[in-house]
Amino acid sequence: MGNKRSQYLMFWVVAAVIFLFFFLKYVSPVVFQVLMGKGHPMPTPSTLMMWYMIMGILAGLVYATTSNQKFVDFLGFLLPGQGTFLKFFLQKIFFIAFPLVVGWFVYSYSLPGAASPVELRIQHPTLPQKYEKMENPFREKDADIQRKCIEEGKVLFQTYCRPCHGSKADGNGPFANSFRLRPINFQDPGTIATVVDNYLFWRIKEGGPGLPSESTPWDSAMPAWDGDLEDEQMWKIIMGEYDTAGVMPRQREKAE
């Protein structure tokens, strides 16, 4: 005990929390950009940021209290006495920084705030019952007919959906920049690959306005195509859409 490492326990914990802050603020947006293949950084929403920071601080405290030995070392950092000049120096920095950080918090909270609101939403709410039993009439047809439907569907997709969802079904159509809730990137494995044909059928038929309120229908530019497209066309578009995006619908559970 009393080795060099544990003398600085508190310093390490605080450093880890500060590191976490910078990671969430500056590194993670880029990491998620790369992971999710987006063309822009994905800033951590401020409420989530707060949660992670609370978690981080708790984790630090949990670590510092895992044994009494650690706890003693942890607080020991603040005590005067034996120690190198470095420890003395860091101690003083802590003493000065703490009130300043408190002041900074108060200052930044009382600024005339212009933080954009976090607009949380659920992308895949439950499918309304009405659509649950529906089947894509073309999926059961023989391979030739299916091939034809896919081709027709692709052309329809390019005609009606392309300006938003993009020619490659990657969510980068020429209009995509204008909708803050961006048109969905269907190549992303977290989107249409996680649902089945009739889910898409519902979304295409009823569009944004058909969403429940936890999915912020008021922000969705997804048109309700009912009335503009025939049901058959929609089923074909769905087949063309999966094909263009290069993904498959989720496999249905076979068990009955």
């Binding site: 987006k38 063309g39 822009h40 950084p41 994905m42 800033p43 929403p45 989530l48 949660w51 992670y52 978690m55 708790l58 984790a59 949990v62 954009s116 609101p117 976090v118 607009e119 949380l120 939403r121 659920i122 992308q123 980068n172 995509a176 920049n177 803050r180 809730l181 961006r182 912020t216 922000d219």
Partner: peptide, 27 residues
């Protein structure tokens, strides 16, 4: 308790897609 908190926050991140508050342009 700890485990619960961690699971909760991971789930929150996974399930909820924040509308990107920063207008994102990909010219």
């Amino acid at each position: 308790v700890n485990f619960g908190l961690i699971v909760f926050s991971v789930v929150a991140f996974y399930k909820i897609e924040a509308v990107n508050a920063q207008a994102s342009h990909m010219f």
